[in-house]
Amino acid sequence: MNKGTIKQILLITDGCSNQGEDPAAVASLALQQGITVNVIGVLENDQTEQPEGLEEVEEISLSGGGVSQIVYAKALSQTVQMVTRQGMTQTLQGVVNQELQSILGSGKNMEELPPDQRGEVMEVVDELGETSDLQVLVLVDTSASMHSKLPTVQDSLYDLSLSLNARMGKNRFSIFSFPGKRKAIDKIVDWTPELNAIASVFPKLTSGGITPTGPALREAMNHFSKKKRVRSLITRDESAREESGY
């Protein structure tokens, strides 16, 4: 099987979008472009009830073919890496399921295999998860209410690169924040294999009042396509995943 690049957007937010298009619609658009969208909703450490705005979190990730989780700021580090890994597995399972369908006929997927065969398929998925290349664009909500959580976000992103760089496959990360000063999003860190140098960037972030999640996602998606076009001119290592709908 062709080991392609898995593309993900990781959206970290604490509330409801209030400007621009529906983020769930943009997320399904992204999925069609072969980019899955994972979402993490962050709660204050003393927040007991789930605020209404966070219902959106699940909707976006469902539309974007990814996974979502709502967590307290304290548990962010472990969640960020877990959601990313889980998202990868899910994407890969999707690819493997498609392969299975082409072999076994439509309607067949992993869950319908007996446990023994499922185990063998899962070994393939695990193998791919370990060796595939991965691109993660992290999109951080920096609206006013997120301000106190930004140091935690920063720690958890460093932790994410620690986890993913223990894999055999290559990684590329980039970080964007929204709302941007002039555009929908601002670039914080350009595509890089490690996130060691982010400590100096985060404290400088200013926070705004609006939360234009939809437009931000669209911009982020475009950043991928730019990347793809540039890279496909240089190398030909793009997978067949785009053609097959992933």
Partner: peptide, 8 residues
């Protein structure tokens, strides 16, 4: 397929 981590 859609394993929602968010749910318990």
């Amino acid at each position: 397929m859609m394993n929602q981590l968010g749910k318990s």
